[in-house]
Write a protein that binds this DNA or RNA. Structure first.
Lengths: 165, 165
DNA sequence: TTCATTCTATACCAAATCAGTATTGATTTT
DNA sequence: AAAATCAATACTGATTTGGTATAGAATGAA
């Protein structure tokens, strides 16, 4: 399925939570407040620290905090911290050569890279600060990045422009 | 990983191949030409037929062909035919209620639904006709849907607009 | 009318991935 | 030195995925 892993989903919840904290907060407290199992939070924070999304302070009275302002952390950043590069297909990943055995016969590599780039841009535009805890079920939109989503023009149902092939 | 299944990838290859055929073509021929295992092609064609992307003709001299023009079939259509609804997270799927046990505590449902809708629109815009077999390694872009991808403005690195929260 | 051809449907299995956990170690404060 | 807290690795069970096998149904042609 075209789905981010549950762990990446958790990581976004954690990052979003950290954004609301004024100071250091311990692993244990994060687990408690987010309702995510402790051992899982520990694993996720490791990835987030490694990717400079979160900073950690060791020792007694240590804990975690965001490494940078929430408007400098995107959904894409968090997904990539947990899952590695965003790549809809193996061949869409420009950071490594494609091992797909079909690639000698397949002509879709470049289209996939372009589609993937589009997706990446979309997810990169949505920052932590754009994600506002929705109060009850009221639809509440805040940032440009998410605002445009609801105001985008409807898709053409009939044939699209001529192919330039 | 944020990746479409390999089967969905195969399905796009098959659909793209069918688009280039003038008439009915048999399962066996499709498998041969695309280098995808026969049994796998059989399974995929079943999904594509069920979702009215491909038409089948039974009996001797039967085979498959696209059910509609290539510019009316999107990458999203094909992914959904194979994988079901596109949903980056469980709660992004508006076609069924969310079973995630974190949902009572989680505030990210609506943001995810918006991000997901954006992704869906992106994939819906790319039609089969937009995907042109790339000749060798020459970068070759054809349709508007893919063209815009490369001409999109760079992302702001510094803080984004004020939060309206 | 019968047979070969071709699509249809279901069920199964092995391998890969994922979520979750346990454990031992390192660092800092008191 | 002891307590608190983060770091790193490795393991396991469950789920998903890719791939396959097999029996069945429809159609066209001899």
């Amino acid at each position: 399925m075209l789905r981010i892993s549950r762990l990446a989903d958790y990581a976004l919840i954690i990052a979003h939570f950290l954004q609301q904290q004024a100071s250091l907060i311990s692993l244990e407290a994060i687990a408690e407040k987010t309702n995510i199992p402790l051992a899982t939070v520990r694993k996720l924070l490791r990835y987030l620290v490694q990717h400079q999304i979160v900073k950690s302070v060791r020792g007694a009275r240590g804990g975690y905090l965001l490494a940078k302002p929430g408007n400098c952390i995107s959904v894409a950043d968090i997904i990539e911290a947990i899952e590695g590069p965003i790549a809809l297909t193996e061949c869409a990943n420009i950071t490594q050569s494609c091992q797909c055995e079909l690639s000698p016969h397949c002509h879709l590599k470049e289209p996939w890279q372009q589609i993937n780039q589009q997706l990446h841009i979309t997810l990169k535009k949505v920052k932590l600060t754009d994600i506002n805890a929705s109060v009850s079920s009221t639809q509440q939109v805040s940032s440009d990045a998410l605002q445009t989503i609801t105001t985008i023009e409807p898709l053409p149902i009939e044939p699209s422009p001529v192919k330039i092939d």
